[in-house]
């Protein structure tokens, strides 16, 4: 399976990136911030999945934005600038329309970030990240991950065996259901018994004893440190701009914002760089690859 360049960065940096971006996206309801987030999420989905992502973005996310954006002015009549009145006498206000649009884009951006998260944060990365804080639970988690494919394999095995010893399945639904139940029953018993075997094996290898170390495939390298600190810096700058109220946007009762100054622009740029980090990493790797290839 093809993985993008950001995937190979240390899991902690991956996770920090998604937390930073999603936090700012859903806490700072500002048209520019939401716009930056939406565009970068869209760009990253395309980097990750290419054509398939475009279909997802245009056929699912875009209609979602339109529907959610339309719903707010229909249900919400706050705001002082009345645009027109509905058939039932309720006012449609400019503020409600804008608020609906911005928050629809915010939800859409989050959906797309989750779409990216699903292909970057694979289960092994969660196991690694949680391993320190909640070792027992992440052990259970990794055992479940191993168990699920084994159960499916076992089901097909048992099903074939049952078919060859029991009379061949007729068309009747009752027979099919009975067959399914016996396959399930056998598989569940097997799963529980093999669980006990696994635990015996764990105990004989010293599970729970002191001083045991665990192996992990991930290493925190210099580039991870560099990338992590850059992301943290960008996050801090944007939070600073928001906390200092230089990035500020009020919807109700009337739209109010602050004139852009240096800190505000720095905040926007920092947030844009934060959001675009995975795309930029991919771009860099691509260019590097082309350069190396052209040298041959």
């Amino acid at each position: 399976m093809h993985r993008d360049a950001f995937y190979s960065v240390h899991p902690a940096v991956n996770m920090a990136f998604f937390i930073f971006v999603m936090l700012i996206t859903c806490l700072v309801l500002h048209p520019v911030i939401v716009g930056i987030s939406l565009v970068s999420a869209c760009a990253y989905t395309v980097v990750l999945k290419g054509r398939k992502a475009l279909v997802f973005d245009l056929c699912l996310v875009l209609p979602f934005i339109i529907i959610v954006a339309l719903m707010n002015p229909l249900f919400n009549h706050e705001g002082v600038t009345v645009l027109f009145y509905l058939w039932n006498g309720n006012a449609v206000t400019k503020e409600a329309v804008l608020y609906g649009l911005v928050s629809a884009c915010m939800f859409a951006a989050l959906i797309m970030w989750f779409y990216c998260l699903n292909s970057v944060m694979t289960a092994d990365k969660y196991v690694y990240l949680f391993g320190r804080a909640i070792p027992t639970l992440s052990l259970v988690f990794s055992m479940v991950l191993r168990f699920v494919p084994r159960i499916f394999k076992r089901i097909s095995l048992v099903s074939r065996a049952q078919r060859s010893i029991a009379p061949p399945m007729g068309k009747s639904a009752v027979k099919a259901a009975r067959h399914g139940m016996s396959v399930l029953s056998v598989t569940v018993t097997w799963a529980l018994e093999s669980a006990v075997n696994i635990s015996d094996s764990m105990r004989s290898r010293g599970y729970g004893l002191k001083g045991r170390t665990s192996f992990s495939i991930f290493r925190f390298e210099k580039r991870d440190a560099v990338m992590g600190s850059l992301l943290l810096l960008a996050f801090a700058l944007s939070v600073w701009a928001v906390a200092a109220k230089r990035i500020y946007f009020r919807f109700y009762p009337s739209i109010k914002t602050v004139p852009a100054d240096a800190l505000c622009v720095i905040g926007f740029i920092a947030f844009a760089l934060l959001c675009l980090a995975p795309v930029l990493v991919n771009l860099k790797e691509n260019i590097l690859w082309r350069l190396l290839k052209s040298k041959i």
Partner: peptide, 25 residues
Amino acid sequence: LRFERRRPAARELVVLAAMIAIGVA
């Protein structure tokens, strides 16, 4: 945290994992 602090025995963990896996499957 309660679950972590209790330090469940290996048997309990694996059987629990098996039940969870059955649920997921």
